[in-house]
Amino acid sequence: MMVKLVDTHFHLDYYRNHRQLYKIINELEQYTLCMTSSPGIYMSCRKLYQETEYIKFALGFHPCERSLSSKDFSDFIILANQASYIGEVGMDFSSDTYISKSLQIGYFKKIVEICAKRNILMSVHLRKSENEAIEIIKEYPPKKCIIHWFTGSVSQLNQLISLGCYFSINANMIQNRNASKKILKIPKDKILVESDGPFTKINGKRFLPEYLQEEYLKIGKYLNLDDFSFCIYNNFINLFEI
């Protein structure tokens, strides 16, 4: 089996030189799932770029984007019944400047229901909202749910594991003592790699696609997995075949 690198959570549209990075990712043959934060941005990306074997775009509705309206969510629902990937979506109760808690819960419940029904992959952002998310995921169990940059408790982690969730890990997470201990508790067959570029750094530099190999080396070394690249690629393939 030819093993290739996979980045399950990347924000192409946040880079000024996104056209150049689009070309580089394809040249490097790195499977990359590009997140968006709203239906409008998703549509702009799809119009600007053709999806390739290595680059796919996910339809997003980010809970921290307080400018998003009910009209935007109506647009999201229409697109969600056609999209192949969903993200970045989720709930974030860490600030009262985000979308209201009640709306976030309602939106997330509908998103998870659609993803479970259509069996499509979703990348989920959770902050101070893990308990509510767990109850929703229990009600509408999705088979292809990736928890992005998990920051909850060990108990919440175990519940999400029991619900079949995958977890995308970036190199910045292993530098945080509390987060790194939790990473060790994730079953190896439920781990994926994300960069969350441009919101992370590798060796003090803002993440770029050419640094993904270094991302793998750092996480693999921390987990003490010599066959880390094979493990992640295998998990990625298994997730898509569910």
Results as ranks from 00 to 15, higher is better:
residue 142 P to D: 01
residue 214 E to P: 07
residue 195 S to C: 02
residue 208 L to C: 13
residue 188 K to H: 14
residue 238 N to T: 12
residue 230 F to V: 12
residue 76 F to H: 04
residue 221 K to T: 11
residue 133 A to N: 05
residue 21 L to R: 15
residue 141 P to G: 01
residue 7 D to P: 11
residue 183 I to N: 07
residue 162 S to V: 04
residue 103 L to D: 15
residue 232 I to P: 09
residue 168 S to W: 04
residue 127 R to K: 13
residue 221 K to I: 05
residue 121 L to I: 09
residue 169 I to F: 08
residue 73 F to T: 06
residue 65 E to Y: 12
residue 147 I to Y: 02
residue 135 E to G: 07
residue 215 E to Q: 11
residue 222 Y to I: 00
residue 73 F to G: 06
residue 95 S to I: 01
residue 142 P to L: 00
residue 72 D to N: 13
residue 232 I to H: 10
residue 44 S to G: 03
residue 69 S to L: 01
residue 130 E to Y: 14
residue 176 N to G: 05
residue 7 D to Q: 06
residue 18 H to K: 14
residue 30 Q to D: 06
residue 102 S to W: 08
residue 130 E to K: 02
residue 207 F to G: 11
residue 147 I to E: 06
residue 41 I to H: 03
residue 120 I to Y: 00
residue 107 Y to I: 10
residue 35 M to H: 01
residue 215 E to W: 02
residue 15 Y to A: 05
residue 74 S to P: 07
residue 139 E to A: 08
residue 68 L to Q: 01
residue 195 S to P: 08
residue 178 N to W: 12
residue 123 S to N: 15
residue 70 S to H: 11
residue 74 S to W: 05
residue 215 E to M: 10
residue 5 L to C: 09
residue 216 Y to C: 07
residue 60 G to M: 01
residue 138 K to C: 03
residue 46 R to F: 01
residue 200 T to F: 01
residue 94 S to T: 11
residue 44 S to M: 09
residue 140 Y to A: 04
residue 227 D to M: 08
residue 107 Y to R: 12
residue 107 Y to P: 08
residue 159 Q to Y: 10
residue 55 I to M: 11
residue 16 R to M: 14
residue 146 I to S: 00
residue 111 I to V: 01
residue 24 I to T: 15
residue 117 K to Q: 12
residue 36 T to K: 04
residue 132 E to S: 12
residue 186 I to W: 07
residue 200 T to H: 09
residue 192 L to Q: 13
residue 106 G to D: 15
residue 28 L to Y: 08
residue 219 I to G: 06
residue 157 L to P: 12
residue 91 M to E: 06
residue 93 F to D: 03
residue 196 D to E: 05
residue 131 N to V: 06
residue 236 F to G: 06
residue 9 H to M: 06
residue 192 L to W: 06
residue 172 N to H: 15
residue 69 S to M: 01
residue 66 R to C: 07
residue 92 D to C: 01
residue 213 Q to I: 08
residue 213 Q to H: 10
residue 128 K to M: 09
